[in-house]
Structure formats: structure tokens, C-alpha cells
């Protein structure tokens, strides 16, 4: 396993775990972008080094904590991390999801998170239900300078939008990707005028294996942390079945064998951005035949 050379991947702050996953004095080993790393914690100080083939620690790597998680960056100059101001809202409490392994590329994960068309079929009775399957047009903006795809004015009727929801309602969504591995979602909360804030943070182990972390910034007072956590885990585990059965695992940016619909505007924007920046990690290289003939 060798570390990727893709600068678009290397410049990102990448999550490696929840802060609570890394225990005092216990080497925390994992893999990022094909590179083995080891993280050591001493109080609130974290140190991360690349590990060689003998697993001995070598080059030190930038590390920081934010949004309840530990992040690293291999590049000298990281691309700035997304600002999620809702974390400063004292009314909100943070739930972290716990890492979940998924056998696919980070891009497949992001696209699934951006997608609403699957709600009635994959999150049946929760985020969607037949016969209300239509996705009305929504707006997509590619903000290249922030490496952000922003999808707004997304609307979907949901039987049970959150743990606190007793009845179905129209739910409004805003999505923001930040680089290739992070997506933040704002959705209408039970409380009038408020938005729930949910973030998916992908740790790419290698091009076809990821570990997914996330957070929910909870406003509802009546939902326990565990109930909110289980709601989120339920939704994500339902997606995992799909994600592990998509072929090819890496995203076929240069093949002609994946046909989008209008409802896929957000993922079309994301793929357009991936091509524009020349992303290679997690992308099926041009001319490859894998998966094309199925």
C-alpha cells in the first residue's frame, strides 16, 4: 500500500477519528490515502506520524482537532477546513456517529449523501416513501475557490424527517461539499425556522475502502442523544448496503456508462468539479476497462 500522489487529496484536512477514539498513551493506528499513520495523544496534544513498512513512525504530519474529531493533513499548506458556525450555537449538542467502514470510494459516499432520489427506496418510511418520489428541480452552484458544491432549494416530503418527527412534512435541504471528502447538510428541523445540521466526514483508507465519521448538531430537547444517534446510524447503515454494491467502486468519471437524471444535479456538479481539478484518487483512470462492460 503506498500513499497517493494526488495533490487534490493530499491538501485536504482528513478525519481519522473522533477525539474520544484516541486514548491517552495508546498508539492509534490507521490508514489514510494509502498511508499507514500512527497518532499519539498526551492530554490535549496530538502527534501524528507516517508509519513505514516496518510500522515504525517517521515523518510527522499536521494534526488538529475540530468538530469533535481529529484531522490530519499530509500537505505543507492545507486547504482551509469548512466553517460550520452552528458548532458555536450553545443551544445545540453534538452527537458523533462512530466510525463505520464501507467498501467503496469516498466519491461514491459523497454522491450518496448528496442524493435524494433514493429516499423512498432505501430509507422507506423515514426520509421518503412511495408514491411521493418526485425530485423537483433545485439549484446547484460550483464554488471552485472554496472547493464547494452547494445545492440549495432542495425539497422533499418525508414521512419521518428526524427522531422527533411524529408526522410527515416537506423538508428543505441545503448541501455543501467541502473538498472531495466532506459534506454538510442543513435540513428543516421540527422547530419552526430552524435547521438541523449534519455532517459526513470521510476517511479514505485507500481508493476503495473508507471509514465514515459524522456528527449531528441536535436542537431538539425531547430526543435523547442515543435516540438521535440510532436514527442517524439507521439511515447510514441503510445506505451502506447500496454503497457496497455499486460497481465500479471508484468513480467512472471518464466512462460513458453512468447516466444521470435531472435529480442528480448535485452529483453532476460534484463530478464536474472532480474533473476540473483533475482529481485522481478514487477515480477510475481514463482508458481503464474495469466495470465498463457490465
Amino acid at each position: 500500500m503506498t500513499k497517493t500522489t494526488d495533490p487534490i487529496a493530499l491538501r485536504e484536512w482528513i478525519v481519522i477519528g473522533a477525539i474520544t477514539d484516541v486514548q491517552q498513551g495508546v498508539p492509534y493506528r490507521t490508514q489514510v490515502l494509502g498511508q499507514e499513520i500512527v497518532c499519539l495523544r498526551d492530554g490535549d496534544a496530538f502527534e501524528v506520524r507516517e508509519a513505514g513498512s516496518d510500522l515504525q513512525p517517521q515523518r510527522q504530519v499536521q494534526v488538529r482537532t475540530r468538530y469533535g474529531h481529529v484531522w490530519i493533513c499530509f500537505a505543507e499548506v492545507p486547504r482551509p477546513m469548512i466553517e460550520v458556525r452552528e458548532f458555536d450555537d450553545p443551544r445545540r449538542r453534538m452527537i458523533t456517529w462512530g466510525g463505520v467502514y464501507v467498501r467503496t470510494s469516498p466519491q461514491r459516499l459523497v454522491e450518496n449523501f448528496l442524493d435524494m432520489g433514493h429516499f423512498p427506496f432505501v430509507h422507506t418510511g423515514i426520509l421518503g416513501a412511495e408514491p411521493v418520489t418526485e425530485i423537483r428541480d433545485y439549484k446547484v452552484e460550483v464554488r471552485a475557490e472554496d472547493a464547494e458544491i452547494r445545492a440549495t432549494e432542495c425539497m422533499f416530503y418525508q414521512p419521518r424527517a428526524s427522531m422527533a418527527a411524529d408526522i410527515g412534512r416537506d423538508t428543505s435541504y441545503i448541501y455543501r461539499t467541502s473538498g472531495p471528502f466532506v459534506v454538510v447538510l442543513y435540513k428543516t428541523a421540527e422547530e419552526e425556522g430552524e435547521f438541523d445540521n449534519i455532517g459526513m466526514l470521510v476517511q479514505p483508507l485507500d481508493e476503495e475502502h473508507c471509514r465514515v465519521f459524522g456528527y449531528t448538531l441536535l436542537l431538539e430537547a425531547d430526543t435523547t442523544d442515543t435516540e438521535a444517534l440510532h436514527f442517524q446510524q439507521t439511515v447510514f447503515l441503510q445506505d451502506r448496503l447500496i454503497l457496497e454494491q455499486q460497481t465500479p467502486r471508484r468513480i467512472p468519471l471518464y466512462e460513458k456508462n453512468e447516466i444521470p437524471a435531472r435529480a442528480d444535479a448535485a452529483s453532476i456538479g460534484y463530478r464536474r468539479w472532480l474533473r476540473a481539478v483533475g482529481m485522481q484518487f478514487g477515480v477510475l483512470p481514463q482508458q481503464a476497462k474495469e466495470g465498463a462492460s457490465q
Binding site: 454522491e111 454494491q245 455499486q246 460497481t247 465500479p248 453512468e258 447516466i259 466495470g291 457490465q294
Partner: peptide, 8 residues
């Protein structure tokens, strides 16, 4: 394989 997003 579905030609939409490669689902089996």
C-alpha cells in the same frame, strides 16, 4: 448493473 449509478 444499473446504468444510473452502477447498482447491482
Amino acid at each position: 448493473r444499473c446504468p444510473h449509478r452502477g447498482m447491482r
